[in-house]
């Protein structure tokens, strides 16, 4: 069925593929960025058309509806201001108590808001690209949070204008986590199933861990990438791990990874 020319072509493609796959990682990263940048024009076009469609939608919204929305927003704004005042008061009190006990002060953290510009085209990874890059001060392994503060993932590669975020549930995003129970059981958040984008597995939990559905899971601060006390999600159910040596918990993520439009990059913890 295959002729000589076909074998030659197949051989050439195999050799070429092997060469590209075995290039040094730095060269591959640069090549990826270079090739990926050919899509910048199309992304700009897509964003502009989305914005135009949004503006057209806004122009068609009736005035009465807009007034109603303004009223709701005003109400929300007042409520949030009240909460901010209370939070500031609590922060001041916390700082005072820390000073009294002699604990080091906690910084407020420094964040940068980025927009999700594209999602993973392959079904076997879980990543997104955002519109912040080295020119915005981003580096590898910075934690990425959803707008409501829940953990989303970490920066895995950075170019001048964009970065790739590897999301929770991807095999390359492992997080040391702690359950908010009396014993503070610790485990590792790892990959989930290919279809479970809202759930992840927390493994290496102690065999006798006191786990209940609804308990929240937070980052433990161990591992050096993710700072302590970032919300990850809530426990849904548990099962015994391999040979019954440990417990594995299924955790429902607090952040909705499918609906991510904007994310916060934590520049400083």
């Amino acid at each position: 069925m295959l002729k000589r020319a076909h074998y030659i072509a197949l051989g050439l493609v195999v050799v070429l593929t092997l060469i590209i796959l075995n290039l040094p990682s730095k060269t591959t990263a640069r090549l990826k960025l270079g090739i990926g940048s050919s899509f910048i024009g199309l992304f700009g076009l897509a964003n502009t058309s989305r914005e135009l469609a949004g503006k057209a939608g806004d122009a068609l919204t009736p005035r009465s509806e807009l007034l109603k929305e303004i009223e709701t927003l005003r109400h929300d704004n007042q409520e949030l201001r009240l909460q901010v005042n209370r939070a500031e008061e609590l922060a001041r009190e916390n700082a005072r108590l820390r000073q009294l006990v002699g604990w080091p002060q906690k910084s407020k953290g420094k964040f940068k808001l980025g927009s999700v510009v594209l999602r993973e085209p392959a079904n076997w990874w879980r990543t997104v690209q955002i519109d912040l890059g080295t020119r915005n001060g981003l580096t590898n392994d910075l934690p990425v949070l959803a707008p409501d503060g829940a953990l989303v993932g970490r920066i895995s590669s950075v170019s001048l204008t964009s970065s790739r975020v590897v999301l929770l549930g991807d095999p390359n995003c492992k997080v040391s986590a702690r359950v908010a129970n009396a014993t503070g059981d610790m485990g590792v958040i790892g990959a989930s199933g290919p279809l479970d984008s809202e759930f992840v597995e927390m493994s290496y939990l102690s065999k006798n861990a006191d786990l209940k559905p609804g308990q929240s899971v937070w980052t433990s601060g161990v591992g050096g990438i993710f700072p302590k006390d970032i919300l990850i999600g809530k426990i849904v159910d548990t099962r015994a791990g391999e040979y019954g040596l440990n417990t594995v918990a299924r955790v429902k993520l607090a952040a909705s990874l499918n609906a991510l439009e904007e994310v916060w990059v934590m520049m400083e913890p």
């Binding site: 593929t17 590209i20 796959l21 090739i35 993973e120 392959a122 990874w125 895995s156 590897v166």
Partner: peptide
């Protein structure tokens, strides 16, 4: 280039 795949796979 747009995926987390190794380049060329």
């Amino acid at each position: 280039s747009l995926s987390a795949n190794p380049l060329g796979v």
